[in-house]
Each structure stands twice: as C-alpha cells, then as structure tokens.
Amino acid sequence: MRKILTVMGAAALAASLNAQAAETIYVGGSGGSTEKLYKEQIIPPFEAKTGAKVVYVPGNSTDILAKLQAQKGKQEISVALIDDGPMYQAVGQGLCSKVEDTSAVKELYPAARMVGDKSVGIGFIATGLAYNKDQFAKHGWQAPTSWQDLTDPKYKQKVVIPPITNGYGLLTLMMMARLNGGGEANMEPGFDAMIKKVAPNVLVWEPSPGKMAQMLQTGEAALVVWGNGRVQSVADQGAPVEFVYPKEGAVVIMVAGCVVEGAPQAKLGQQFLQHVVSAESQALMAQAVGFGPVNKTTKLSPEVARKVVFGPDKVNALISPNYDIINAKRAEWTNRWNRAVER
C-alpha cells in the first residue's frame, strides 16, 4: 500500500511540476532600459494576477524575427515585441496569431491596429530630427524645421544618421523620396537626394544607440535623425539637445506585439499582450522608455505627456510608411545603399 501511495505521490508531484512548467511563457523584446522596465514593473503584476511565470528574452528585432523563423512549427517564444517593419515580415510569413479583440485592445488608437489584426502597436515613436543647441548657437544657426535641412551644405560633416539596416536610416531615405516627387513605390528620387545632397553632410552612419547618444551629447553630431524617446533620454541626462517634429511630419515607428502562431501557452500570450497595451502598462512605458501610449485611455502627467507622442492630435499627425512595399524591396535597397550612399 505504501508503495502505491509513493508511486501516486510521485505521479502527483510530476503532474504538478508539469503544470507549473506549462504556465511559463517566453517573451522576446528589446534589451537595455526596455528589458529593465518589463522585468521590474510590467511582468511582476502580470505574474501576480495569473500565477504564470514570464521569462523575458532580450534581443533586437531582427534577431527575434530570425528566432521565430528558425523555430517555425516548434516555437518557444509565446509573445514577440519588435519594431513594426520586422513585425510586418513576421505577419506576412504566418508567424503571428490573430489578436483577440477584447479588453484593452478595444481601447487602442486605430493607427495601432495593424493590418490583418495579427499584431498591434504597443508604443508610438516619432522619427524626426534632433540637434545640439550649443553647436547651433555657436554657429549662429536657426533650429532645424524640415527634413530638407539634412541637405543644407552648412551642415557638412555635422550630420549623423543610422544606416539603412536601422529603421531610422531607411525612413530618412523614404522621406527624401517623398519630398522629391517619389515615395515607397518610386525610391529613385530618394537615392538621388541621399547620394548627392545628404551623404556629403554625414560624418558617420552610426548604428550604435550608445555612440549616437554620445556624439549628440558632445556636439560632435550637431544634427541627427533619431527617435523622440532616445533623444529625450539624452536630454534627461542634462545634455543641450532637443527633438524636432519636422514641418512635413515625423514618421512613426511603432514597437509592435504579436502572439506567436503555434506558440506554447497561446492563451497566456493573449493575456500578456492585453496587459502590455493596458492603460496602466502604457503609462509605465511612456515614463520609463518614452513610448507614446497606443491606448486612448492612458493618463499621463503633463511632464511626461510633453516628452512623448501623446493624444489624438500628435498620433494622427504621424506619417505611416507602406511596409508592404518596403519589405519587398528592403534587400534591394540595402545593397544599393551600401554601394552608392554609405561609401
């Protein structure tokens, strides 16, 4: 009898351990300050509410997309939180499940409801210009107001832009095309402007956010293309820098989320995505990492609201890229950029 009870106890313990293991979900997202925010403030209340364990897997968007592609059919990651460009690729490759239209998802701005309802935006970032105010004052320059300022010869060797493999470089190319009679479907004017007018002003095509921040802070970079949140982080450290929404419009980069198709714990994944876009989580993200809230009901202090994309007026003014065209041409444009622009 004792042997039977021992076997039954072992079986119960095994079942209990399996149940606990089954309640663990893996979430892929950015590292750095975003990872810190999730681990310290966003994940703990979700774990307390659901009893689940959330393991945060840090990485850049392209690395996380590559993991989803490699693990197709045997996914380990339940929720992916990546930039909108790679997210459109993930959706197009069947790597994302339909987002449940319940709870906080119903409170999102229309701009955060991504095509096909397989993913949603989890934060708005405005791509525009930033400048070092001390450098501009030293040279007697007026504050920049337009994307076309990047072509002004007076900024020769004073401009820093990330490369095309970074979202900011790609969106600069897109805006140069749009402002010169082209667009995503006709990138020729963009390449022409980048090669002849912008590239001569560029000191370096800098991929590292840390190096970019340092160059902007010291004034080595007087004028840059970057996201409002990253610029605000530099300003918060006391640097004389300011973000500018160009008069033609700032371009939206959304960080987006999806529940991975075929992922373990899909139900928990849906619950976690709802938690991420809730007004409470959105307020935390705005304050900690400068993401503009995608949830219309989010409440922010005036100080935080001033620093992020907040409210329908700012959200509606953002320019949205056509990623269907961009993703189809991305490899071709990258090769051309590497040959002709970034030399």
Rank of each mutant, 00 (worst) to 15 (best):
R2T: 15
A14N: 03
N18S: 07
Q20Y: 02
T24M: 09
T24Y: 04
G28F: 11
G29R: 15
G32E: 12
G32S: 15
P44L: 03
A48T: 14
G51S: 10
K53P: 00
P58K: 00
N60I: 13
I64F: 06
L68S: 10
Q71W: 02
I77E: 05
L81P: 00
L81E: 08
D83L: 04
D84A: 13
Q89G: 15
G94Y: 04
K98Q: 06
E100N: 08
T102V: 14
S103T: 04
V105A: 11
E107K: 11
Y109E: 09
P110W: 01
R113D: 04
R113N: 09
V115K: 14
G116D: 05
I125C: 12
T127H: 11
Y131N: 04
D134K: 09
G140N: 07
W141R: 06
Q142K: 04
T145A: 11
Q148I: 02
K154T: 10
Y155W: 03
Y155K: 01
Y155C: 03
Q157Y: 12
Q157E: 12
K158L: 03
K158P: 01
V159T: 01
V160C: 10
V160M: 13
I161A: 00
G167I: 08
G167D: 14
G169K: 00
L171V: 01
G181N: 05
E184R: 06
E188L: 04
A193T: 12
A193G: 11
M194L: 04
K197N: 11
N201K: 05
N201E: 02
V204K: 11
P207I: 02
P207R: 10
P209C: 08
A213P: 06
Q214A: 10
L223V: 00
Q237T: 11
A239C: 10
K247L: 08
K247F: 07
A256E: 05
C258E: 05
G262S: 14
Q265H: 09
A266R: 13
K267S: 12
L273V: 14
Q274W: 12
Q274R: 01
Q274E: 13
V276L: 06
V276W: 07
A279R: 02
F291L: 10
V294N: 03
S301T: 10
P302F: 07
A305I: 04
K314S: 06
I319S: 12
N322Y: 14
Y323I: 14
Y323P: 15
K329N: 09
A331L: 02
A340Y: 13
